[in-house]
Design a binder for these strands. Sequence first.
DNA 1: CCTTATTTTCAATATTTATTGAAACTTCGA
DNA 2: TCGAAGTTTCAATAAATATTGAAAATAAGG
Lengths: 168, 168
Amino acid sequence: MKLHEARQQFISSWGAFGTHWGINRTMAQIHALLLISAEPMTQDDIMEELNISRGNTNMNIRELINWGLVDRVLLPGERKEYFTAEKDIWKVVKQIVKERKKRELEPMLELMGKLEEVEGDKRDKHIKTFLETVGNIKKLGLQADKTLDIMVRAEEHWFLGAMMKFIK
Amino acid sequence: MKLHEARQQFISSWGAFGTHWGINRTMAQIHALLLISAEPMTQDDIMEELNISRGNTNMNIRELINWGLVDRVLLPGERKEYFTAEKDIWKVVKQIVKERKKRELEPMLELMGKLEEVEGDKRDKHIKTFLETVGNIKKLGLQADKTLDIMVRAEEHWFLGAMMKFIK
DNA sequence: CCTTATTTTCAATATTTATTGAAACTTCGA
DNA sequence: TCGAAGTTTCAATAAATATTGAAAATAAGG
């Protein structure tokens, strides 16, 4: 397979992959493109390579910057902005985990806390089932939250090494 | 907060949560409803409770069954089908992990394997960057695959206990 | 078999989400 | 301060996805 075709496939499948994870196709594709590009790229480079409009490119680059996955780079003597992606995949994963934990897991746990205060007789079957479900979700969620916290702080060699020892 | 309101909030937020995870709102809401219901429910019960059409209900129940999150139950003397959700959240999480691993992680790793065979001079900067990215994704992906495999097989008490000891 | 209750399918439609592109804004050098 | 180069915004539009509901298929009982 030629590099050009391989790059196309990488970008397209990373895009499809993204859509299963609540990330839009374009954002994932821009990320993919930057991941496999040796040099920083401008908005125009990205627009041309992916055949997308200026507005779309701009919005998704900004979103990637918000997620901490892409950085703005200023090249000396150049007026245009250039962009690069963090190439260390472990850092990328940690960054994504960190954001989703904050955006989704934590608000969810907060809600479970509130829902545990439902009023009524705890011996009532309906209340009981409700409280059990909510309680169990909260318990597991807290556990996950702690574990992910450690992961986000960990170095790859330490975390994966320890994990490997731990799991077998 | 009254039970009725708490249930509404649980269902609605579980639905919103689902949409961030590539699961459609209705599917997540049906799952939520069954999670907090003490008794098995029929399609009509679900339709009424969530105000959704028969077709929509049916399709999403079937999808939940495919995911292994909901079971068909036949009550003696009843012609209608009833449905229940697995209430053990640890099992639910394991089931979801198992499915997504199979549907997404494994095909992705297979693709990375193919893309590693790109032809060309490995000293070329573009080839080099491409191969490094693909190689690193594959490495980390394989690691994740193994770890999730263990998790899917583990019992909650064992897994979480070990994890807690490991992380602190 | 035939009737009726129940489940499934799927084309039409509605809703949500993503994309475009032109206009507004910002920045910087002359 | 002005003009050109570059960036951002956002209303309009396109594309993707979810939902409906009625018709077709299936199953169960007599």
